[in-house]
Design a protein around this nucleic acid. Structure first.
Lengths: 116, 116
DNA sequence: TTGACATGCAACCATATGGTTGCATATTAT
DNA sequence: ATAATATGCAACCATATGGTTGCATGTCAA
């Protein structure tokens, strides 16, 4: 519930967050080791701290990463829920087409041959 | 096979293609009715033809849409395979975390309470 | 207390992106 | 043939984006 409240509406922010490869690397890093701090992330991913900050803000906006301030350290925790929501939604939307793909491809190939 | 050959490597193009809402609308439109032509898409989505062209080029680069030229018409067919590949990959990557989410959230809340 | 460490914030920059306009080309229909 | 239709192509524009630099603030440890 905590992690659902802000993600249901705007799948846009999630797609946008996932669009950048650096941010996907960040997610992967956090998946390997959760709760990493800003400076650690910037060190290990060989990115400037400020760049990491900007990426993390976008990931936080998509609720994919939850920041926890502890003292002077900012820890980052992964929240897979928005990702899985998106995935489930788009899967159900397109899974049905999978069966029809072969037929479609057939159609396309016929048309292609027709033209060549 | 036909639809797999170019998508295995660069998930980047797929993420990029999905990042824009207009392109997601295009995919939805094609999901509703496959094989639509460029001008029809631009009419029904109330976008300029040139804008649609650019979006379709990006979708084609991600192999999410397959164009078929027939006479003076360019028909567009949906290919759900790259999407489902991405989805499966990222699902398997993050599904395992879903079980641990509650524990993580607990940890976060404890830390939050500790600070307040 | 004081210096090292972790982060926040704002300005700046180069490039990418989404979109438009104008013109050229190719195909269909009358 | 000729006009209407469908698309391609290139230049241009405003804004978004990813990234940097410099400085300020806040926290921990000696």
């Amino acid at each position: 519930m905590f992690c659902m409240k802000r993600t249901a509406d705007n799948q846009s922010s999630v797609f946008k967050a996932l669009a950048d490869e650096s941010r996907r690397h960040l997610l992967d890093k956090l998946r390997q080791q959760d709760g990493l701090t800003l400076s650690v992330l910037s060190r290990e991913l060989e990115m400037s701290r400020q760049a990491v900050t900007k990426h993390l803000l976008i990931l936080e906006a998509a609720n994919l990463v939850v920041p926890v301030q502890r003292g002077r350290n900012k820890h980052h925790y992964l929240n897979p829920v928005p990702l899985l929501q998106i995935v489930d939604r788009w899967t159900s939307r397109f899974r049905q087409l999978q069966a029809g793909v072969l037929i479609d491809l057939k159609k396309q190939l016929e048309v292609n041959n027709e033209k060549q």
